[in-house]
């Protein structure tokens, strides 16, 4: 089991300035697994993804990616270990065209998508390749934000709220996209507000509350414990 481990987080504490956001998070993700992080807004899920990337003010504990301790690494070195981060705000660059956005992240290692592969998965992007990045529709921008981290050869994808605010037909397309990435052996951590979307894709689910992991469930336990999960997510 140890050889198949992609990510192990032990007793992670994260801070923004004086605010202490994560309070001792423990989490493991196996190679090829799809894991969903559920929880209310402010539970610490986005901060957990940012902590993995080294994008918080300060972090303590252990974050081992593919056998490498990353807690003291700068963000760009962490990324080079094969992490692809798709932030909640999508961060499409307005001064770059669609294709420039797509081509921006450098290829970190072999085995990534080619540009043709990305266009194959998201044909809309091919049609919009010359458009200014931020002129794309919300769904197209989301596809672009996912597509551009597939080119890098990253094997561990951190996807923050990718279904948020999108039309059902786009969400269905993203669902198919995640399934296809899973079939290709990608390891994926999904931060989701949309329980249905996440539950349909994830092998396992972590529920976060107040900067801690409150529950850890396997996909086959979700139905039986749906009431418990809904209590954590309910307002």
């Amino acid at each position: 089991m140890a050889a198949a481990e992609m990510l192990r987080i032990t007793d992670l504490h994260s801070f923004y300035g004086e605010s202490h956001i994560l309070h001792g998070v423990d989490l493991q993700v196996g190679r090829g697994e799809v894991v969903a992080l559920l929880g209310r807004n402010g539970a610490g899920r986005t901060t957990l993804l940012k902590s993995i990337m080294g994008l918080v003010g300060r972090r303590t504990g252990r974050i081992v990616v593919n056998g490498r301790e990353t807690i003291d690494m700068p963000t760009h070195r962490i990324a080079a270990l094969g992490l692809g981060y798709c932030p909640e705000e999508r961060a499409i660059f307005s001064t770059l065209s669609c294709e420039e956005n797509l081509m921006l992240p450098p290829v970190l290692r072999g085995g990534g998508f080619s540009v043709e592969d990305v266009y194959g998965m998201f044909p809309n992007l091919r049609e919009r390749r010359a458009s200014q990045g931020t002129r794309l529709s919300g769904g197209e921008q989301q596809m672009l934000a996912i597509g551009r981290i597939l080119r890098t050869g990253a094997q561990l994808l951190l996807l923050d709220e990718i279904s948020e605010g999108l039309a059902p037909v786009i969400v269905i397309a993203l669902d198919a996209c995640i399934r296809s990435l899973k079939d290709r052996g990608y390891t994926i951590i999904l931060v989701e507000q949309n329980f249905e979307f996440a539950a349909g894709l994830a092998d396992r689910v972590y529920v976060m509350e107040n900067g801690r992991i409150a529950e850890s469930l396997r996909a086959n336990e979700l139905e039986a414990k749906a009431g418990l999960v809904q209590r954590y997510l309910g307002v």
Partner: peptide
């Protein structure tokens, strides 16, 4: 920050 998260030494 996002550019650095793509692996570029900002």
């Amino acid at each position: 920050r996002i550019v650095q998260a793509f692996g570029i030494n900002v």
